[in-house]
């Protein structure tokens, strides 16, 4: 497809005013660096085996990036530009082939909607397991079950198997489970577009709240307009 095409991350600090925080409307100055990437590269093996020379696809190359505490960082790029790979790297799910990633002791998690859902099981069971997968303890997620039910607006469907849900209902449940998660760094991969129009607005408002509190957020989106609207800084892959 695009073998060997080299992509270089251009890190653009788009808001030079960010450093001029005055008065007391919440601090703006870029905080300490909490995660830093240095010359990070990732390549995937496309084919190859014992008898054939392996063929690689360079997903990311030479990425230098510092992530600051409290910022909202937007990541834009075409399909296949390596946006999701970058998030996986930052989340610590995968390691780079070259370069280094330093995490200065912060918890990072990827907001995964409907992770590990089993279609045969009712919404409650799925909410509990999915929550536990994301990092809640069982008690924490059980204590929030009522809130999850209320936020997802599923009503009786909460006790029906997920296979009877529409795709919108599935993502509503997934979102309701995930939104209580507050890791130091929250990674969002195109999650601001779930459910129907009404729910999307509600979900977006809830997410925006995270984006605008002191949470560090890295947001991946196809929509550059959305990134510009909500992010302090953006990078292009």
């Amino acid at each position: 497809m695009m073998a060997g095409v080299q992509r270089v991350a251009t890190s653009v600090v788009s808001k030079p005013m960010a450093n001029q925080a005055k008065e007391n409307f919440g601090t703006q100055a870029l905080g300490e660096v909490i995660i830093s990437l240095e010359a990070v590269g990732v390549r995937y093996k496309r084919r190859g085996g014992l008898l054939r020379k392996p063929d690689y696809f360079q997903a990311l190359q030479g990425i230098d990036l510092d992530i600051y505490r409290g910022e909202t960082l937007g990541v834009v790029g075409r399909n296949g530009a390596g946006k999701s790979t970058l998030l996986r790297l930052i989340a610590g799910i995968i390691k780079p082939d070259s370069g280094t990633i330093t995490n200065h002791g912060v918890s990072v998690s990827l907001l995964a909607l409907a992770a590990g859902f089993d279609a045969e099981l009712p919404g409650t069971d799925n909410a509990i397991f999915s929550g536990m997968l994301l990092g809640y303890t069982r008690r924490q997620v059980e204590a929030r079950l009522d809130d999850i039910e209320a936020f997802s607006e599923l009503g009786d469907f909460m006790h029906q198997p997920v296979k009877t849900y529409s795709s919108g209902m599935r993502s509503r449940l997934g979102f309701a489970v995930a939104m209580y998660m507050t890791p130091d760094v929250l990674l969002l991969d195109e999650v601001l577009s779930v459910g129907d129009k009404e729910f999307r607005k509600k979900a977006e408002a809830e997410m925006m709240k995270k984006l605008h509190s002191d949470q560090t957020v890295i947001l991946v989106s196809h929509s550059e307009a959305q990134i510009d609207r909500v992010c302090d800084r953006k990078i292009e892959l």
Binding site: S107, E120, L121, Y136, T137, R138, T182
Partner: peptide, 30 residues
């Protein structure tokens, strides 16, 4: 507020396995 640990506690890990196995059995039976 729930901040996920950098690495899951081993007890939480065991609970996760136990929960998933139980749910799988339930799902299989259903």
């Amino acid at each position: 507020k729930i901040s996920p640990p950098t690495r899951r506690h081993w007890l939480a890990f065991i609970d996760l396995i136990w929960t998933k196995a139980r749910l799988n059995l339930k799902s299989e039976a259903s």
